[in-house]
Simulated scan of single mutants.
Amino acid sequence: MEHRNFWLGSLAVASLLLSGCAAAGAAEPGSVASTASESASASETHAAGHSGEHHDAGSAAPATSEGEGPSEAALMVCGTETQDKISTSLGLSTAPHSVSGWADKLFTCTYHLAEGSFVLSVKESADPASARQYFDSLQSKAGDAAPIKGLANLGFPAYETTGGSVVFLKDNMTLSVDASDLPGAVGPNSVTPTAFAYQISTTILACWTEHP
């Protein structure tokens, strides 16, 4: 797999992590590294954690009590801020409809876009060592997985696939963003599915950095 040019350097990455959930500027289309500068507007939210929960545009439901459902960090993938980021990136007038599920410590949020399904998930492992085993297992099963290296991995273990998936590991949480069902050119800037997945994943990671 051809590696992308990570030429934006440390300034873009530092800006991402320090800004957290604050807004950032636009990025060059088609580059996974350049989408880091687009990462923005993903803050702590209260999306529903119940299995099979439906989310209309702008809706939110209370999370389950502590110990019974996903953490607030996991819920961010289906929260209002993430919905807004997806809408902004795709030029949507309203937030996309989504359906969430919670099973076996895996919180999944599926966004139903006009072009296809966009799936975000967070696996909450018992500890960082178990999380690393889960991450390594996912990577070994992905035949076309390539590590995301240098500044673009934001200091975390990460990999991407040519099909449109990006996976990051942070502490005991594994974030998977799957845009493989989307067309080859995504959004008004016609980025690749992998670049779009990277853009949204760094938005969430910025919030995780600000709200650990």
Rank of each mutant, 00 (worst) to 15 (best):
A103W: 07
P62W: 04
S71I: 01
E66Y: 07
C109Y: 07
H46C: 12
T110L: 05
G164P: 03
P183R: 06
T82Q: 02
F156N: 14
D171R: 02
A129S: 15
R132Y: 13
G143W: 07
D144Y: 07
D127K: 05
A48P: 15
T64V: 07
E81G: 11
P183L: 02
L113I: 03
G91L: 05
K123T: 05
S71Y: 07
W102I: 00
T108Y: 04
G79V: 14
F156P: 04
L169W: 01
A63N: 09
A126Y: 05
A129G: 10
K105S: 09
S100G: 05
A145L: 09
V99H: 01
A145I: 08
S137V: 06
C78N: 03
A73W: 01
G52W: 13
L138P: 02
S137K: 15
V119K: 11
V99D: 06
A73M: 04
S100V: 15
P157G: 13
L169A: 06
A114Q: 10
A146I: 10
K85P: 09
M173D: 04
A74T: 02
A131E: 06
S71N: 04
I86V: 13
F156Y: 15
L113N: 02
A129K: 06
G143D: 12
A145M: 11
S100R: 04
L106C: 05
S165M: 10
G163V: 02
D181S: 10
K105I: 00
S137F: 07
